[in-house]
Design a protein around this nucleic acid. Structure first.
Length: 424
RNA sequence: GCGACUGUAGCUCAGUCGGUUAGAGCGCCUGACUGUGGCUCAGGAGGUCGAGGGUUCAAGUCCCUUCAGUCGCCCCA
Protein backbone atom coordinates (compact mmCIF):
# COMPACT_ATOMS: atom_id res chain seq x y z
CA UNK A 1 0.00 0.00 0.00
CA UNK A 2 1.24 3.42 -0.81
CA UNK A 3 1.41 5.75 2.15
CA UNK A 4 1.64 9.45 1.75
CA UNK A 5 3.94 9.84 4.70
CA UNK A 6 6.17 7.35 6.36
CA UNK A 7 8.96 7.47 8.91
CA UNK A 8 12.40 8.35 7.57
CA UNK A 9 14.63 5.44 6.66
CA UNK A 10 16.34 3.92 9.65
CA UNK A 11 14.16 5.49 12.35
CA UNK A 12 11.44 3.74 14.29
CA UNK A 13 8.15 4.46 15.94
CA UNK A 14 7.93 2.92 19.36
CA UNK A 15 4.32 1.81 19.50
CA UNK A 16 2.25 1.39 22.68
CA UNK A 17 2.69 -2.38 22.59
CA UNK A 18 6.44 -1.88 22.90
CA UNK A 19 6.73 1.25 24.95
CA UNK A 20 5.89 -0.57 28.18
CA UNK A 21 9.08 -2.57 27.74
CA UNK A 22 11.02 0.63 27.11
CA UNK A 23 9.66 2.25 30.23
CA UNK A 24 10.41 -0.81 32.27
CA UNK A 25 13.99 -1.00 31.00
CA UNK A 26 14.47 2.69 31.61
CA UNK A 27 13.24 2.45 35.18
CA UNK A 28 15.57 -0.48 35.86
CA UNK A 29 18.37 1.62 34.43
CA UNK A 30 17.48 4.59 36.60
CA UNK A 31 17.37 2.43 39.67
CA UNK A 32 20.82 1.07 38.88
CA UNK A 33 22.17 4.60 38.43
CA UNK A 34 20.63 5.65 41.72
CA UNK A 35 22.41 2.84 43.57
CA UNK A 36 25.75 3.73 42.01
CA UNK A 37 25.40 7.43 42.72
CA UNK A 38 24.83 8.66 39.17
CA UNK A 39 22.59 11.66 38.59
CA UNK A 40 20.58 12.20 35.45
CA UNK A 41 21.76 14.77 32.91
CA UNK A 42 19.89 15.77 29.76
CA UNK A 43 21.81 17.55 27.05
CA UNK A 44 20.42 18.96 23.78
CA UNK A 45 19.87 16.81 20.75
CA UNK A 46 22.33 18.87 18.70
CA UNK A 47 25.63 20.54 19.34
CA UNK A 48 28.23 22.53 17.46
CA UNK A 49 29.76 20.16 14.94
CA UNK A 50 33.23 20.92 16.19
CA UNK A 51 32.49 19.37 19.57
CA UNK A 52 32.23 15.98 17.91
CA UNK A 53 35.01 16.35 15.37
CA UNK A 54 37.38 17.38 18.16
CA UNK A 55 36.40 14.68 20.62
CA UNK A 56 35.60 11.66 18.49
CA UNK A 57 38.38 12.38 16.02
CA UNK A 58 38.44 13.70 12.45
CA UNK A 59 39.53 10.46 10.84
CA UNK A 60 37.04 8.18 12.54
CA UNK A 61 34.23 6.73 10.43
CA UNK A 62 31.60 8.31 12.64
CA UNK A 63 32.87 11.81 12.03
CA UNK A 64 34.01 11.40 8.45
CA UNK A 65 30.84 9.85 7.07
CA UNK A 66 28.09 9.14 9.57
CA UNK A 67 27.08 12.40 11.18
CA UNK A 68 23.87 14.32 10.59
CA UNK A 69 25.41 17.72 10.06
CA UNK A 70 23.57 20.80 8.86
CA UNK A 71 23.80 24.56 8.87
CA UNK A 72 21.32 26.68 10.77
CA UNK A 73 20.12 30.04 9.48
CA UNK A 74 23.02 31.81 11.11
CA UNK A 75 25.46 29.70 9.12
CA UNK A 76 26.63 27.71 12.14
CA UNK A 77 27.46 24.05 11.56
CA UNK A 78 25.39 21.87 13.88
CA UNK A 79 25.30 18.10 14.33
CA UNK A 80 22.75 15.73 15.79
CA UNK A 81 24.54 13.97 18.61
CA UNK A 82 26.15 10.75 17.37
CA UNK A 83 27.12 9.62 20.88
CA UNK A 84 26.56 10.66 24.46
CA UNK A 85 29.92 11.38 26.05
CA UNK A 86 31.10 14.58 24.39
CA UNK A 87 27.92 16.56 25.15
CA UNK A 88 28.08 15.51 28.79
CA UNK A 89 31.68 16.60 29.09
CA UNK A 90 30.80 19.87 27.35
CA UNK A 91 28.00 20.50 29.86
CA UNK A 92 30.29 19.51 32.71
CA UNK A 93 32.76 22.17 31.64
CA UNK A 94 30.22 24.81 30.71
CA UNK A 95 28.50 24.67 34.09
CA UNK A 96 31.65 23.98 36.04
CA UNK A 97 30.21 20.87 37.64
CA UNK A 98 33.67 20.16 39.01
CA UNK A 99 33.00 22.88 41.55
CA UNK A 100 30.50 20.60 43.28
CA UNK A 101 33.46 18.56 44.42
CA UNK A 102 33.38 14.87 45.14
CA UNK A 103 32.50 12.28 42.56
CA UNK A 104 30.98 13.67 39.42
CA UNK A 105 28.79 10.86 38.20
CA UNK A 106 26.36 11.58 35.40
CA UNK A 107 23.95 9.27 33.62
CA UNK A 108 21.60 9.63 30.69
CA UNK A 109 19.08 7.92 28.46
CA UNK A 110 19.24 9.60 25.10
CA UNK A 111 18.60 9.21 21.41
CA UNK A 112 21.59 9.46 19.12
CA UNK A 113 21.96 9.69 15.36
CA UNK A 114 24.23 8.16 12.76
CA UNK A 115 23.64 8.07 9.05
CA UNK A 116 24.50 4.47 8.26
CA UNK A 117 22.70 1.88 6.21
CA UNK A 118 20.11 0.38 8.55
CA UNK A 119 20.19 -3.29 9.36
CA UNK A 120 19.37 -5.56 12.25
CA UNK A 121 20.27 -3.72 15.45
CA UNK A 122 21.49 -0.65 13.64
CA UNK A 123 19.31 2.38 13.12
CA UNK A 124 19.79 6.00 12.18
CA UNK A 125 18.12 7.13 15.36
CA UNK A 126 18.85 4.79 18.23
CA UNK A 127 18.97 5.12 21.99
CA UNK A 128 21.71 4.78 24.48
CA UNK A 129 21.82 4.43 28.24
CA UNK A 130 25.11 5.81 29.41
CA UNK A 131 27.07 6.84 32.45
CA UNK A 132 30.11 9.08 32.82
CA UNK A 133 32.36 9.20 35.86
CA UNK A 134 34.51 12.33 35.75
CA UNK A 135 37.47 12.93 38.00
CA UNK A 136 38.51 9.47 39.09
CA UNK A 137 41.89 8.11 38.06
CA UNK A 138 42.15 4.97 40.14
CA UNK A 139 41.65 1.45 38.79
CA UNK A 140 38.93 0.98 41.38
CA UNK A 141 36.81 3.48 39.44
CA UNK A 142 37.18 1.34 36.32
CA UNK A 143 36.31 -1.73 38.35
CA UNK A 144 33.23 -0.10 39.84
CA UNK A 145 32.08 1.08 36.43
CA UNK A 146 32.51 -2.32 34.80
CA UNK A 147 30.89 -3.90 37.84
CA UNK A 148 27.91 -1.62 37.31
CA UNK A 149 27.61 -2.78 33.72
CA UNK A 150 27.82 -6.47 34.54
CA UNK A 151 25.40 -6.08 37.41
CA UNK A 152 22.90 -4.39 35.13
CA UNK A 153 23.00 -7.15 32.56
CA UNK A 154 22.75 -9.70 35.34
CA UNK A 155 19.68 -8.00 36.76
CA UNK A 156 18.09 -8.01 33.33
CA UNK A 157 18.54 -11.76 33.20
CA UNK A 158 21.58 -12.18 30.96
CA UNK A 159 24.13 -14.86 31.75
CA UNK A 160 27.52 -16.10 30.53
CA UNK A 161 25.90 -17.96 27.67
CA UNK A 162 24.20 -14.90 26.26
CA UNK A 163 26.76 -12.12 26.64
CA UNK A 164 30.52 -11.77 26.86
CA UNK A 165 32.72 -9.02 28.26
CA UNK A 166 35.92 -8.06 26.46
CA UNK A 167 38.58 -5.97 28.13
CA UNK A 168 41.68 -4.28 26.83
CA UNK A 169 44.01 -1.40 27.47
CA UNK A 170 45.23 0.87 24.72
CA UNK A 171 47.79 2.88 26.67
CA UNK A 172 48.03 6.62 26.93
CA UNK A 173 49.63 9.56 25.16
CA UNK A 174 52.99 8.61 26.65
CA UNK A 175 53.22 5.00 25.63
CA UNK A 176 50.84 4.54 22.75
CA UNK A 177 53.02 6.25 20.10
CA UNK A 178 55.75 3.66 20.56
CA UNK A 179 53.27 0.82 20.31
CA UNK A 180 51.59 2.44 17.37
CA UNK A 181 54.90 2.60 15.57
CA UNK A 182 55.74 -1.01 16.35
CA UNK A 183 52.33 -2.12 15.16
CA UNK A 184 52.64 0.02 12.10
CA UNK A 185 55.92 -1.48 11.04
CA UNK A 186 54.61 -4.98 11.66
CA UNK A 187 51.59 -4.25 9.49
CA UNK A 188 53.74 -2.72 6.79
CA UNK A 189 55.77 -5.90 6.58
CA UNK A 190 52.57 -7.86 6.07
CA UNK A 191 50.75 -5.27 4.03
CA UNK A 192 50.56 -7.41 0.92
CA UNK A 193 48.43 -10.03 2.66
CA UNK A 194 46.03 -7.58 4.31
CA UNK A 195 42.74 -6.35 2.89
CA UNK A 196 42.44 -2.93 1.25
CA UNK A 197 40.86 -1.22 4.28
CA UNK A 198 43.58 -2.55 6.56
CA UNK A 199 46.25 -1.34 4.18
CA UNK A 200 44.61 2.03 4.23
CA UNK A 201 44.56 2.03 8.01
CA UNK A 202 48.24 1.23 8.39
CA UNK A 203 49.12 4.85 7.87
CA UNK A 204 45.93 6.56 9.01
CA UNK A 205 45.00 4.65 12.15
CA UNK A 206 46.86 1.36 12.58
CA UNK A 207 45.14 0.39 15.83
CA UNK A 208 41.78 0.28 14.08
CA UNK A 209 43.12 -2.41 11.79
CA UNK A 210 43.23 -4.75 14.77
CA UNK A 211 39.50 -5.28 14.87
CA UNK A 212 39.14 -5.93 11.14
CA UNK A 213 36.91 -8.93 10.52
CA UNK A 214 38.04 -9.96 7.05
CA UNK A 215 38.92 -13.68 7.36
CA UNK A 216 42.21 -13.47 5.46
CA UNK A 217 43.48 -10.75 7.76
CA UNK A 218 42.88 -12.74 10.93
CA UNK A 219 46.11 -14.80 11.11
CA UNK A 220 48.26 -11.71 10.66
CA UNK A 221 46.32 -9.61 13.11
CA UNK A 222 46.24 -12.39 15.68
CA UNK A 223 50.00 -12.53 15.48
CA UNK A 224 50.39 -8.77 15.78
CA UNK A 225 52.52 -7.61 18.69
CA UNK A 226 50.45 -7.03 21.86
CA UNK A 227 50.61 -3.69 23.59
CA UNK A 228 51.66 -4.97 26.99
CA UNK A 229 55.46 -4.63 26.64
CA UNK A 230 55.02 -1.10 25.35
CA UNK A 231 52.80 0.17 28.17
CA UNK A 232 54.37 2.79 30.38
CA UNK A 233 54.70 1.97 34.04
CA UNK A 234 51.59 3.91 35.02
CA UNK A 235 49.38 2.32 32.36
CA UNK A 236 50.73 -1.08 33.13
CA UNK A 237 50.10 -0.69 36.84
CA UNK A 238 46.61 0.65 36.15
CA UNK A 239 45.69 -2.33 34.05
CA UNK A 240 47.15 -4.81 36.50
CA UNK A 241 45.29 -3.11 39.31
CA UNK A 242 42.04 -3.29 37.39
CA UNK A 243 42.56 -6.93 36.45
CA UNK A 244 43.18 -7.85 40.05
CA UNK A 245 40.09 -6.01 41.26
CA UNK A 246 37.92 -7.63 38.63
CA UNK A 247 39.11 -11.04 39.76
CA UNK A 248 38.23 -10.20 43.33
CA UNK A 249 34.83 -8.97 42.25
CA UNK A 250 34.27 -12.19 40.35
CA UNK A 251 33.73 -10.45 37.03
CA UNK A 252 34.29 -12.83 34.16
CA UNK A 253 35.93 -11.27 31.11
CA UNK A 254 38.12 -12.03 28.19
CA UNK A 255 41.28 -10.09 27.54
CA UNK A 256 41.07 -9.07 23.93
CA UNK A 257 44.31 -7.55 22.65
CA UNK A 258 42.56 -6.53 19.50
CA UNK A 259 39.73 -4.56 21.05
CA UNK A 260 40.05 -1.03 19.72
CA UNK A 261 37.23 1.45 19.80
CA UNK A 262 35.88 3.79 17.18
CA UNK A 263 36.51 6.95 19.16
CA UNK A 264 39.89 8.61 19.41
CA UNK A 265 39.34 9.88 22.93
CA UNK A 266 39.82 6.57 24.69
CA UNK A 267 42.88 5.94 26.82
CA UNK A 268 43.94 2.94 28.87
CA UNK A 269 40.88 0.83 29.64
CA UNK A 270 38.49 -0.12 26.87
CA UNK A 271 35.72 -2.69 27.14
CA UNK A 272 32.80 -4.01 25.21
CA UNK A 273 29.88 -6.31 25.92
CA UNK A 274 28.80 -8.52 23.05
CA UNK A 275 25.48 -10.24 22.74
CA UNK A 276 25.66 -13.76 21.40
CA UNK A 277 22.19 -13.95 19.87
CA UNK A 278 22.31 -10.84 17.72
CA UNK A 279 23.31 -10.56 14.09
CA UNK A 280 26.37 -8.76 12.89
CA UNK A 281 25.64 -5.83 15.17
CA UNK A 282 26.40 -7.58 18.41
CA UNK A 283 27.97 -4.89 20.58
CA UNK A 284 25.42 -4.00 23.25
CA UNK A 285 27.73 -1.92 25.40
CA UNK A 286 30.96 -0.08 24.76
CA UNK A 287 33.03 2.02 27.04
CA UNK A 288 36.33 2.88 28.57
CA UNK A 289 38.53 5.54 30.03
CA UNK A 290 39.07 8.92 28.39
CA UNK A 291 41.64 10.68 30.52
CA UNK A 292 42.51 13.37 27.97
CA UNK A 293 39.08 14.35 26.69
CA UNK A 294 38.25 16.95 29.34
CA UNK A 295 41.51 18.70 28.60
CA UNK A 296 40.95 18.31 24.87
CA UNK A 297 37.67 20.18 25.22
CA UNK A 298 39.25 23.04 27.10
CA UNK A 299 39.17 21.97 30.74
CA UNK A 300 41.95 21.25 33.14
CA UNK A 301 43.40 17.74 32.79
CA UNK A 302 40.82 15.46 34.43
CA UNK A 303 40.65 11.69 34.28
CA UNK A 304 37.27 10.24 33.34
CA UNK A 305 35.55 7.09 32.16
CA UNK A 306 32.17 5.95 30.95
CA UNK A 307 30.11 3.61 28.82
CA UNK A 308 27.06 3.47 26.62
CA UNK A 309 24.51 0.68 26.30
CA UNK A 310 22.45 0.21 23.13
CA UNK A 311 18.80 0.19 24.14
CA UNK A 312 17.40 -1.30 20.92
CA UNK A 313 19.95 -4.09 20.92
CA UNK A 314 19.35 -4.97 24.55
CA UNK A 315 15.59 -5.07 24.01
CA UNK A 316 16.08 -7.14 20.88
CA UNK A 317 18.16 -9.69 22.75
CA UNK A 318 15.73 -9.79 25.63
CA UNK A 319 12.94 -10.55 23.19
CA UNK A 320 14.90 -13.32 21.53
CA UNK A 321 15.82 -14.82 24.90
CA UNK A 322 12.30 -14.46 26.29
CA UNK A 323 13.55 -12.41 29.21
CA UNK A 324 10.60 -10.75 30.93
CA UNK A 325 10.18 -7.03 31.38
CA UNK A 326 7.17 -5.99 33.39
CA UNK A 327 4.34 -4.76 31.26
CA UNK A 328 1.81 -2.02 31.65
CA UNK A 329 -0.99 -2.68 34.10
CA UNK A 330 -4.52 -3.16 32.87
CA UNK A 331 -7.25 -0.91 34.27
CA UNK A 332 -8.92 -1.94 37.48
CA UNK A 333 -12.37 -1.46 36.07
CA UNK A 334 -14.33 -0.82 32.90
CA UNK A 335 -17.51 1.19 33.28
CA UNK A 336 -20.36 -0.31 31.28
CA UNK A 337 -23.45 1.84 30.80
CA UNK A 338 -26.93 1.16 29.57
CA UNK A 339 -29.07 4.00 28.37
CA UNK A 340 -28.53 7.72 27.90
CA UNK A 341 -28.79 8.85 31.50
CA UNK A 342 -26.50 6.04 32.57
CA UNK A 343 -23.88 7.22 30.11
CA UNK A 344 -23.64 10.53 31.85
CA UNK A 345 -23.61 8.82 35.23
CA UNK A 346 -20.91 6.47 34.00
CA UNK A 347 -18.71 9.30 32.85
CA UNK A 348 -19.06 11.10 36.17
CA UNK A 349 -18.33 7.89 38.03
CA UNK A 350 -15.27 7.16 35.94
CA UNK A 351 -13.94 10.65 36.66
CA UNK A 352 -14.54 10.16 40.37
CA UNK A 353 -12.64 6.87 40.39
CA UNK A 354 -9.78 8.37 38.42
CA UNK A 355 -9.55 11.26 40.83
CA UNK A 356 -9.23 8.63 43.53
CA UNK A 357 -6.19 7.24 41.75
CA UNK A 358 -7.76 4.23 40.03
CA UNK A 359 -7.22 3.31 36.39
CA UNK A 360 -10.64 3.14 34.80
CA UNK A 361 -11.81 2.85 31.20
CA UNK A 362 -15.16 3.61 29.64
CA UNK A 363 -16.62 3.47 26.15
CA UNK A 364 -17.72 6.57 24.27
CA UNK A 365 -19.23 5.15 21.10
CA UNK A 366 -22.69 4.09 22.32
CA UNK A 367 -22.02 0.41 21.87
CA UNK A 368 -24.35 -2.30 23.01
CA UNK A 369 -23.94 -3.73 26.48
CA UNK A 370 -22.50 -6.86 24.97
CA UNK A 371 -19.95 -4.92 22.97
CA UNK A 372 -18.96 -2.94 26.06
CA UNK A 373 -18.45 -6.16 27.97
CA UNK A 374 -16.24 -7.39 25.16
CA UNK A 375 -14.13 -4.27 25.43
CA UNK A 376 -13.90 -4.72 29.19
CA UNK A 377 -12.63 -8.21 28.63
CA UNK A 378 -10.23 -7.22 25.92
CA UNK A 379 -8.55 -4.48 27.93
CA UNK A 380 -8.08 -7.05 30.71
CA UNK A 381 -9.93 -4.98 33.32
CA UNK A 382 -10.44 -6.83 36.58
CA UNK A 383 -13.96 -5.54 37.10
CA UNK A 384 -16.88 -4.36 35.06
CA UNK A 385 -18.95 -1.66 36.71
CA UNK A 386 -22.46 -1.78 35.27
CA UNK A 387 -24.83 1.13 35.47
CA UNK A 388 -28.37 1.22 34.14
CA UNK A 389 -31.62 2.85 35.19
CA UNK A 390 -32.14 0.34 38.02
CA UNK A 391 -28.78 1.14 39.56
CA UNK A 392 -29.27 4.86 39.19
CA UNK A 393 -32.60 4.61 40.98
CA UNK A 394 -31.05 2.66 43.84
CA UNK A 395 -27.81 4.62 44.08
CA UNK A 396 -25.78 1.49 43.41
CA UNK A 397 -23.68 -0.09 40.69
CA UNK A 398 -23.39 -3.72 39.67
CA UNK A 399 -19.79 -4.77 40.24
CA UNK A 400 -18.76 -7.82 38.29
CA UNK A 401 -15.48 -9.60 38.81
CA UNK A 402 -14.47 -10.63 35.32
CA UNK A 403 -12.29 -13.51 36.46
CA UNK A 404 -14.71 -15.15 38.88
CA UNK A 405 -17.94 -13.98 37.22
CA UNK A 406 -19.22 -12.95 40.64
CA UNK A 407 -21.54 -9.99 40.52
CA UNK A 408 -22.99 -7.99 43.35
CA UNK A 409 -24.61 -4.67 44.11
CA UNK A 410 -22.38 -2.04 45.64
CA UNK A 411 -23.47 1.33 46.96
CA UNK A 412 -21.95 4.16 44.94
CA UNK A 413 -20.43 5.65 48.05
CA UNK A 414 -18.63 2.42 48.87
CA UNK A 415 -17.28 1.76 45.39
CA UNK A 416 -13.87 3.38 45.76
CA UNK A 417 -13.08 1.49 48.94
CA UNK A 418 -14.38 -1.75 47.52
CA UNK A 419 -12.25 -1.44 44.39
CA UNK A 420 -9.21 -0.49 46.37
CA UNK A 421 -9.42 -3.49 48.65
CA UNK A 422 -10.50 -5.94 45.97
CA UNK A 423 -7.76 -4.76 43.65
CA UNK A 424 -4.97 -5.50 46.09
C1' G B 1 28.34 4.23 0.40
C1' C B 2 28.40 -1.24 -1.76
C1' G B 3 25.97 -6.28 -2.22
C1' A B 4 22.03 -10.08 -1.77
C1' C B 5 17.02 -11.10 -0.93
C1' U B 6 11.87 -9.51 -0.29
C1' G B 7 7.25 -6.17 -1.26
C1' U B 8 -0.55 -9.29 -2.12
C1' A B 9 -6.06 -7.03 3.73
C1' G B 10 -4.23 -4.18 10.34
C1' C B 11 -0.84 -8.99 11.06
C1' U B 12 1.10 -13.91 9.01
C1' C B 13 0.88 -15.70 4.32
C1' A B 14 -1.63 -18.67 -0.30
C1' G B 15 -2.35 -17.31 -5.37
C1' U B 16 -0.58 -23.27 -10.57
C1' C B 17 1.89 -22.69 -17.29
C1' G B 18 0.30 -15.06 -17.53
C1' G B 19 -6.54 -16.24 -18.24
C1' U B 20 -13.26 -14.24 -15.49
C1' U B 21 -15.73 -10.62 -9.82
C1' A B 22 -7.71 -11.54 -5.76
C1' G B 23 -8.16 -15.83 -1.25
C1' A B 24 -7.23 -18.10 3.88
C1' G B 25 -6.07 -17.84 9.10
C1' C B 26 -5.64 -14.35 13.00
C1' G B 27 -7.38 -9.53 14.31
C1' C B 28 -11.52 -5.91 13.80
C1' C B 29 -17.08 -4.77 13.60
C1' U B 30 -22.22 -6.77 14.11
C1' G B 31 -25.64 -10.46 15.54
C1' A B 32 -27.42 -15.44 17.94
C1' C B 33 -35.57 -13.54 20.83
C1' U B 34 -34.02 -6.98 22.55
C1' G B 35 -29.44 -5.66 30.95
C1' U B 36 -23.77 -9.18 30.71
C1' G B 37 -17.38 -10.65 28.34
C1' G B 38 -13.81 -14.92 27.13
C1' C B 39 -15.74 -20.41 23.88
C1' U B 40 -18.85 -21.63 19.64
C1' C B 41 -21.75 -20.36 15.32
C1' A B 42 -23.38 -16.82 11.51
C1' G B 43 -22.72 -12.39 8.88
C1' G B 44 -19.85 -7.95 7.61
C1' A B 45 -16.05 -4.26 6.70
C1' G B 46 -11.17 -3.98 4.83
C1' G B 47 -6.74 -4.70 -0.96
C1' U B 48 -6.00 0.68 -7.36
C1' C B 49 -1.44 -6.82 -5.39
C1' G B 50 4.70 -0.85 -2.91
C1' A B 51 4.97 3.03 -7.12
C1' G B 52 5.90 4.23 -12.38
C1' G B 53 6.68 2.41 -17.18
C1' G B 54 7.00 -1.73 -20.80
C1' U B 55 5.72 -6.66 -23.29
C1' U B 56 0.85 -9.04 -24.29
C1' C B 57 -5.72 -9.96 -26.70
C1' A B 58 -4.89 -10.45 -21.31
C1' A B 59 -0.06 -8.98 -15.84
C1' G B 60 -0.50 -10.01 -8.65
C1' U B 61 2.27 -13.41 -12.07
C1' C B 62 7.19 -11.70 -17.35
C1' C B 63 10.89 -7.28 -18.25
C1' C B 64 12.93 -2.32 -16.85
C1' U B 65 13.12 1.77 -13.45
C1' U B 66 12.15 3.58 -8.73
C1' C B 67 10.79 3.53 -3.58
C1' A B 68 10.63 0.81 0.86
C1' G B 69 11.94 -3.24 4.03
C1' U B 70 15.21 -7.18 5.63
C1' C B 71 19.97 -9.26 6.06
C1' G B 72 25.18 -8.81 5.05
C1' C B 73 29.91 -5.57 4.02
C1' C B 74 31.82 -1.25 6.36
C1' C B 75 31.28 0.76 11.22
C1' C B 76 29.23 0.64 15.87
C1' A B 77 25.12 0.88 20.56
Amino acid sequence: MELKYRAIKGVNDILPDESGRWQSLESKWRDLCRRYGYRDIRTPIFEATELFTRSIGEVTDIVSKEMYTFEDKGGRSLTLKPEGTAPVVRAYLEHNLAAEGGNIKLCYFTPFFRQERPQKGRYRQAHQMGAEFIGAAEPSADAELIGMVTQFFGELGFDQDSIGLSLNTIGCRECRPAYREALQSYLRQNASTLCATCQDRIERNPMRALDCKVPDCQPILDAAPPIDPYLCEACSAHFEGLSALMKQMGIVYERNHRLARGFDYYTRTTFEVQGKFLGAQNAICGGGRYDTLVEELGGTPTPALGFGIGVERVLMMMTEMNLPLSEEEPPVAFVVTLGDSARTEGLLLAQLLRQAGLAVEIDHTARSLKAQMRLADKCRARFAILIGDNEIAQGTVALKNLQTHEQREVLRGALIETLRSEAQ
